[in-house]
Amino acid sequence: MSNTSNLLERNTEDVLAGVLERTDNDLVVVDPSAQVVRALIDIAADRDGDLPTLDVVADERLLKDVMDDFLVAADAADLVDAGDLTLRNLDEDADNTILVGEDELYALVTAGDYVAALAADDDSFIADAHETYREVWADADQFNLRTPALSRVRETLSDEISDEVRADFDGVLQSLEAARGDGDGLDEVTISLLVAAKNDVLLYDISKWGEDAGIASKATFSRTKTRLEDMGLIDTEKVPIDVGRPRLRLKLGDDRLRGADAGELASVAQSMLN
């Protein structure tokens, strides 16, 4: 009989951390909720490889919604690049969110103020389930994760723009719980432009970096700059060049932003956007 046992915790993160601490083998994670996907990525990113490989098979629309948050998607991309995570599209819903390895199987259940990982204890059932869901994962299409890895974003920002801009970019990200462009928060393009403006960087330079790094196209950077300029968050000044039209240097457009450090920049900008 399997020696796994049930886990009961106050939140999803704690119960998943408990499961991962017990597991030596790779895990197939079947039909997770958005909360489970985010929690798994947060836990895996914090552990820096000290976890089993997580092979996630989830609803494609759910994955797209979760990955609209740059903070989550960039961490996920790092994990994918390191071979610690795979993301694939599930064609049909399972009855429960399941985490299954060679020697263990847990079903996640929420009840009231608690989250439980209910463990199966029959070895043959676990083996059959592992074979079944490993085949489901193998047959599933890979999820198209378009966000670049956060490590690449940070490295290229330092190399191509400056260490100061990278430090401010990190400071803004650390102050955020989410970075998405759905009206609920600042997206990665807005954050990049704000920290560029804080450091008097040329629009051409930050938009070229953003396109090369896979953040967004130059056109998206230009449109976002225009929106922020219209709302008073960013100013520009023309910088003559030897050949062609002058380029635009980005400046912060409001004293509240100019007086904010990197950790405060996001909250001040968000209050102005709202």
Rank of each mutant, 00 (worst) to 15 (best):
L90P: 00
L62R: 04
V195L: 04
R154F: 09
D81K: 15
A73V: 06
A127L: 06
N144M: 13
D84F: 03
S271E: 13
D255R: 13
G244S: 06
D168K: 03
N3L: 13
L273T: 05
D55N: 12
F70P: 06
L202M: 15
A213L: 07
G185Q: 05
A213Q: 04
R146H: 12
D121P: 01
P240A: 10
L7R: 00
D254E: 09
A266F: 03
F143D: 08
N144D: 11
S151G: 11
D168E: 12
D46C: 10
D65N: 14
T190K: 13
W209K: 05
D242P: 06
E264K: 12
D163W: 09
R146P: 10
D254G: 02
A44G: 06
A120Q: 10
F221I: 04
S271G: 08
K198I: 06
K251Y: 09
Y106P: 01
L79S: 03
Q270G: 01
F169P: 03
N89M: 10
V165R: 01
T4V: 15
L193A: 05
Q35G: 13
K198W: 04
G181I: 06
I43Y: 02
A74V: 03
L194M: 07
V239G: 08
L8F: 05
V56I: 15
E211T: 10
W209Y: 13
A216V: 14
L248R: 14
A34R: 09
D255A: 13
L257G: 02
Y204S: 13
D182M: 04
N6I: 00
D255N: 14
D261I: 08
A17S: 12
V165Q: 07
G244N: 04
A107R: 10
R227V: 07
T156D: 13
I126P: 00
D187L: 03
D14P: 01
G181Q: 08
D84G: 08
K208N: 12
A34P: 15
A178N: 14
D42I: 01
R134S: 14
L27I: 10
D24R: 11
D168P: 01
S207F: 07
